[in-house]
Design a protein around this nucleic acid. Sequence first.
DNA 1: TATGCGAATGCAAGCGCTTGCGTTCAGTGG
DNA 2: CCACTGAACGCAAGCGCTTGCATTCGCATA
Lengths: 335, 335
Amino acid sequence: MATIEEVARAAGVSTATVSRALRQQPGVSERTRQRVRTVAEEMNYSISRSASGLATGRTRRVGVLVPFVSRWFFGQVLAGAEEVLRSAGYDLMLYVVGDEEGRERFFRELPLRRSVDAVLVLTLSLSTEESDRLRELDVPLGFVGGRMDGFNSVWIDDHGGGMLAVRHLLNQGHTDIAMIHGGAPDALNLPAPHERCTAFRDAMAEHEIPVRESWLGTGDFSVSGGRRAMNRILADELRPTAVFAMSDEMAFGAMHALRNHKIHVPGEIAIVGFDGHEMSECSGLSTVVQPVRQEGGTAAKLLLEQLEQGSTETRDVVLPTELVVRSSTTGDDSM
Amino acid sequence: MATIEEVARAAGVSTATVSRALRQQPGVSERTRQRVRTVAEEMNYSISRSASGLATGRTRRVGVLVPFVSRWFFGQVLAGAEEVLRSAGYDLMLYVVGDEEGRERFFRELPLRRSVDAVLVLTLSLSTEESDRLRELDVPLGFVGGRMDGFNSVWIDDHGGGMLAVRHLLNQGHTDIAMIHGGAPDALNLPAPHERCTAFRDAMAEHEIPVRESWLGTGDFSVSGGRRAMNRILADELRPTAVFAMSDEMAFGAMHALRNHKIHVPGEIAIVGFDGHEMSECSGLSTVVQPVRQEGGTAAKLLLEQLEQGSTETRDVVLPTELVVRSSTTGDDSM
DNA sequence: TATGCGAATGCAAGCGCTTGCGTTCAGTGG
DNA sequence: CCACTGAACGCAAGCGCTTGCATTCGCATA
């Protein structure tokens, strides 16, 4: 594997010139630059990131933290970020810090210290200590899923989105509305889920409809959780006529539960989700669509911009949501 | 950010000793080792991967290639690999090479040259040139989803799994069986999908049942593709009584299509999938479960083993599949 | 022809580690 | 008491780049 030294010798120039030529820096004549490039290509030369990193102090690598990779939402966000990073010539180092143990270890050892130019946190709720620990890294930071001091933040209007969903149900004439939320401390205790909850209560309050507590279920953002929550709600003496699920996956679970109970959707119970999961269309699920990939991509872009400017100034971006109505809330589809 | 130099000075030893102490190498007394460790911790020292990499020629990084991240299957495999790599102290560099453009660029530039100790390819069918290009890297290679020369390979018995599924249908008395496969050149043109197809034909042949070509649909491994395929099959003058879908996601799509046509599952048409997708349980889908996470984890382990032994010898591992029967093929569940 | 001046290029000192080898030193057997 | 030994430790030469500064060179200007 050729080194810059060998390329320099082969091209009859110094290593300095090779370095400058290959990195498009000024101070090299066009003739020389071409020759160096050709020689380098012929020798199948590729720069040693380690050496380059040592010399410059920059790694051209971005660390990305996710709680899971195997869930649709995170996969999408990750894909969006990866695409932007890759086309900017940055490598992406993936850290999955879902379980408590891995997480604890991650923040203790902080393996990305000195090995990453920036860090992107995807929808992972950080404790104060954890975010401080990241700030100590002294590199540009990005966050998807809420606003965060010192982080370039990208999020959606969760409250607005939630209102969209619940008002839609209310407009259909529903008053007996149940809600399936994420989880106890709201699962990942992110602002997003909480906002959607608040939106539910606010929309109900708008119409002066009291919220029935036994119609509030917990589904930890999973399909099976959604099903369990729905079953629990159905165990109540009264039955709602509509359900607002805070994620599509929980909505899917709920729909399965309803099917098992032979309860017709939307005839007997209407249901609306949140996310715009790829399967929502097939399932005929009405949902609040968020631009998932774009969230990851935008966050990556903000990060790269800050990296290039070398500034410490962070930016915030709020992305739009949109209600897509399907057969799970309107009877006009065969269901 | 402290360097080894500063730690050495603070601990009153040479950098050599610090290096050896921290890396658990012999030649340091226990007393010294402890002192160094304490000092390093106090100073919040962390090694510079670049410098270390330059000096040793090893990066403690593994490159992972995936065609997508946002699909359940890939997410799971990736998660399995990540976990193993992380706990072995390796960082994972993610490369998504789904689209043709990114892929072409990836193999041309080969950004992981010199920046990775090993490469893991997840269910991505490589052309001969592409795999040769990886072999040129001269690092241990791993592959999930089939056998590959020069790669530590992990796969499942796709043919056996397919037989399991189809025989199950046959045993239920079905003879009119349709199949939804991945895609034209079998989508990612991996051995796996092809094997499952062959299994279908073999199982049918076992029972001397001819395959009806108009009951073979193409669903590109997606939910919507599965739905389309099912619709196309239903457009045939004859209607099958069972369907074998080569992936759960396509099976989900097919089930939605059936529901839209008000065709009862399994009463009128039974359906069996392949994968063990997390939603298969909720959907009551019978399926051939494969140990997805484990596939990623095993491949990572093989890679690490080879890395540690420094050998060039690769290994192959075949993981088991299992048929899980649910309500989509047996009527005993309310569906 | 002498002089000046950019542009092009080379020199060499790092960047922060690792590691082969030499040195020191306490302990041991003769 | 001395030579010897092995463990513990330090020296310093890299690893392959980048980059500030010095040098060279071609060419226009005086």
